[in-house]
Each structure stands twice: as structure tokens, then as C-alpha cells.
Design a binder for these strands. Sequence first.
DNA 1: GTATTATTAGAGTATATACTCTAGGGAGTC
DNA 2: GACTCCCTAGAGTATATACTCTAATAATAC
Lengths: 230, 230
Amino acid sequence: MKTRDKILLSSLELFNERGERNVTTNHIAAHLAISPGNLYYHFRNKSDIIYEIFLEYEKLVDFYLDIPEDRAMTLADMTFYLESVFDGLWSYRFFHRDLEYLLDSDQRLRQDYREFTQRCLTAINRIFERLAEAGIIEAQPEALRAAMSLNVWLVVTNWMAFLKTAHAEETYANLTLNELKQGIYQVLTLELPYLTPAYRDRVLELREQYRPTLSDQEEAAPELSRVASR
Amino acid sequence: MKTRDKILLSSLELFNERGERNVTTNHIAAHLAISPGNLYYHFRNKSDIIYEIFLEYEKLVDFYLDIPEDRAMTLADMTFYLESVFDGLWSYRFFHRDLEYLLDSDQRLRQDYREFTQRCLTAINRIFERLAEAGIIEAQPEALRAAMSLNVWLVVTNWMAFLKTAHAEETYANLTLNELKQGIYQVLTLELPYLTPAYRDRVLELREQYRPTLSDQEEAAPELSRVASR
DNA sequence: GTATTATTAGAGTATATACTCTAGGGAGTC
DNA sequence: GACTCCCTAGAGTATATACTCTAATAATAC
């Protein structure tokens, strides 16, 4: 593998593990057992590394959220979107942690991320539209659908931060992908009131599969899971 | 005013304006025109300053979310809770920005914030319960109410970060309290499906007052101030 | 082969940051 | 005056951090 790619890979790994703020370019170089000079031969600065990682993230999510228009949407499609989005969040989880600082430090990133958010919101909106066409949820006025899409986005992008704060002693690294995917339970909660009678039970069943389990949560926030599973 | 209090006040101001990461203890001292030595006479370190500011924040929100149990809850009560919570978020807005780093750096804060989150979730849950008792929303099973409360929390605590990313050129400091309060529109969107027929129109009307408008992006929304000073 | 280009090492630097240390001022008390 | 206590100034420090510079080595082209 090219040194350049190794730098990107190691950076992502270290950022995810320790948080961007706690990872210096010297750390990255040391982790790869290369010199700082070598690192700076491939990247002008730390921001450039982060920006390239963002481009990968963007590409991944854009790929996941590509919506086929040639056939009716299914529950399986919806599940795929949800799973994929949380997979993406997991793989690039450092990103949302220091989002505001990163955007303040890099104008390109700021602009790109803004457009990325817009595309995601549009995609969520379109998914709701297609779910309505497929008879899975009731059709809603555009204004409501837009507000609902935004709420989905807010829940999805904040779920990880919430999980982290719900943990007591463990650090950032102690989250698991499975815990993260319990965010799907929260997203499906948003959809519940709009489900058609024909699909309501099936979605409820699907939702149950993501319900925070005792064993997962007990270490983290015992009193929460008791409430949530009552 | 005591130097100690001035330090807390200036720190909060600078943190809110520039972000905690961009504000050093030397900046704070310089801003107050006192010596670093003086600052460190009053606080052992930067973490201690942040922790004390958090205690103020916690106190404020706990005060706002105290729920009277001696009378039925009203729409005015709900409006008050929403307005208050966003006021609190605004006044201590630096906090959620660097939340994960702050919690990683200070065990006390981590523990306290975790309990604080739990109290907030319990309060939101109780508000839903009381709204149902008052006939404003339909009663829901406890499990659903818990999931809904969590979604409210996620939307509320992530709304500001979203607004920041939605802005194109402006920096952190360019947010306004009025824009922030459009988050109320999003929270009320969550409640919509559960409203009783008797209250549905009134809540819809209330919600309209917080709807994001085009003019809001450039100037403060005049109609919001009326609600704010109920 | 030689010339050129791409890559790498590693020492080094300017700046920033959190924090320390010593000396002393001012106010109250005896 | 002298003593005490609280507060303050300001120079200073150890460490970290992002990044640079030079020289050498490997790869490729001719």
C-alpha cells in the first residue's frame, strides 16, 4: 500500500480511537514508523488529511443513499439505509465529534459539509416520499415531511454523542457498533405514528430487533434501560 | 465583583464566542487584564473553571425543569419549558460543542453530566406524562414515552450544531438566540401525531410561531419575541 | 550505465499552552 | 510599627505541536 494511503488509514484509525484533538501529526507518523518529514511530503498539513478522509466519508454515504427510482421501495430497503448510515457513522465516528472545530478550521470542509448535509436531508425526504408511495407510511404534506427528515438527521447524528455521555467510566473507544445501531430504534420511533395499518406490525417487529438490550446498556446506564424496556 | 466571579464570567463569554478549544487560560487572563498567576490563584486549572461553569448550567436547567405537581399542566407551561431549555443552551452554548472532549478530560464532569442527562430525560418524560393527564397529548405506554423523550433530548441538544453547519460563511459567533429557538419548531414536530383533537390546532398555531423563515437568516424574527415574553 | 524524479529520514524550529514561583502590595488587627 | 491574610503581578518553564529543511536513498526513464 502507498504511504499516502497508509497515512489516511492510520489517521482515521487514531482519530476514531482517541479523537482528532488528541492525535497529532507526530503521533500519526510514529504510529506508522515513518518520519514527520515523510508525512508532510504527502500532506501539506493536518487539515488536508482530515479533508481527504471526509471526502471518503462523503462518497460512502452518497453511495449508500442513492435511491433506486425504478421500483417500489421495500422495508428491506429502509433497513438497508438505516444500517448503512450507522455503519458510515461508525467508520468515521471521529468526524462528528469535533465537527464544529473542524468546520471552523477549514473553509473547504465547511462548504462541502454544508452541501453534504443538504444532500442527506434531501435523500431522507425522498425516502419518506417513496415509503409513502409504497404504502408503508401515510403520505404527509411536504412541510411536515421536511421537518420530519430534519428530526431524523438530528437523531442520527447525535445518537453517538448521547451514547458516549451515557457511558460512565469507559472512554470513547469503548463504544460498539451494536450499541450504535440501537439508534435505529430511535429513528423508527419517529416513524411509528405515520405507519400504515398494513405495515405497522412489521415495522414494530423490526424496531424490536434494535431495542437497547439489558446486557448492552446495563454497564452504561442501568436506569435508562429499565425505563426504556418497561 | 470578585475576581473569581469575573474569571468565570469572562471564561463563559470567551468559550461561547470562540469555543473552549480556542480559548487559553492566558487569553482569559489577558481579557480581564489580570496576570496568569492571579487566575491560577483562584483556579487550579482550566478544567476547574469549566467544571464550575457546568455547575451553574446544571443549576439553571434543574431550576427550569422543576415540574409543579399541584395543578394541571398547561400549554403555557410547555412553552415555558421549551423556551427555557433553549435559553439555557444558548447561555452555555460552548458546552455541547466540545462535550466529548470535556467529559474525557474530567471524571467529575463526566459523572455529573451523566446524572444531569438522566434527570433531564426523566423530566421530559414527566412532562409528557403531565401533558397527557392534562388532555393535551394522548397517553402513551411508558416504553414509547421513554423513547420519545430521548428523541426530544437528541433533537434539542443537536439543534445548535446543526444550525452552525447550515450556515455558510459565518462563524460560531453569528448564531442568534432567535434562530436557536426555531429548534422548538422541531420539538413540536415530534409531538404533532400525539396531540388530542382539543389541542391540536392550538399547538399547530404555537408551532407556526417558531417556524424558520427566510428573513430569520438575515435579521431577528420579530414574532418570536412576543412568545418569549409571555 | 547516467540523469531525473519520487520518496524518506531525522534533526530542528517557532510558537503556543498550561501552569509555577517569587516577590510584594493593601487592608485589617494588635 | 509589626504581623497576618488575601490577593496580585509578571517573569519564567517544561512540554507539546505543527511544520520545515537538508541530505540521502530508492525508483524510473533514457
